[in-house]
Amino acid sequence: MLSRVAENIYWMARYIERAENTARLIMVNTNLLLDLPKAGQLGWQPIIEILGCEAHYLESNQDYDERTVLKYLISDTSSANSIYHSLQLARENARTIRDIIPREAWERINGLYNTAKATVQSGYGRKGRFDYMQNIILGAQTITGLLAGTMLHDMGYDFLKMGRNLERADMTTRIIDVRSADLLPEHEMMTPFENIQWMSVLKSLSGYQMYRRTMQERVNRPFVLKFLLKEKKFPRAFFHALLEVKDCLKHLPRNEEAIELLNDVGKKVLRADQAILQQEELHRFIDELQLGLADIHKVISKTYFRHPVAE
């Protein structure tokens, strides 16, 4: 398989997943703001911080007013995280590999991009937001399903799955991070609402029911963290995503370095003790996990997409 084609498949999958996850992130925060007392709310600033795009955001915006942030997250064409931009890049990548992906998948990607663009206004306000985000999430899920059900499960599909799972693992950590942000000590007044908040995190990852079935525990911090970070069987859990990537790597040549790195990150997450994962520690721990994912990406890119002879 051509490196360029593999790379395009990988990024296509990442951007589709990113669009879906940004939509989920927006939903979790919207719900939180509805559930929590109005005083002391952190609003939308933490989301921008969690996405690591504060500097970029402030280049063209002055405050963290809800509508401004939503506009940025949904339709800013210069932001690597905005839904519209992610879908645009997913489509760009898909376009060059149309002979690899089934035609229906291409049509769905194109269709999702077009709808997201045409209805972009409806996501800014709270009224139409749920429908808009739901449409993005379902659209992305449809594409994922179509690809799983119709694409050749060859090496190309491995790159697709790796892209999707690395992106997913990354966003799961970021969604957890939303919680750790407004549970910092200076926001003690939020403590009574903690469990409600963890519930909304689970729901944003479509994980509430799955949590109930797996953990058989009431919703509280240590178990939710355990579930979202370490659960092997939940598709949006960090560890599950790592295992998926590892599975794909096993089919590929020259996989030693990537697998070794992946095992390190896996061990780190399994060893994490929820008890020590208090607010600030959690935030740092999540940074570490995100750096681990970035390193895995770098190794995959170096091993399969870049060739010293061509540089």
Partner: peptide, 23 residues
Amino acid sequence: LVEGRDLVVDKDNCVYMLTVEGL
């Protein structure tokens, strides 16, 4: 189906495709 950037001529004057398996 390749583009120019998918191909490279190595020191042995042979043409290679850049693939995930290598050259």
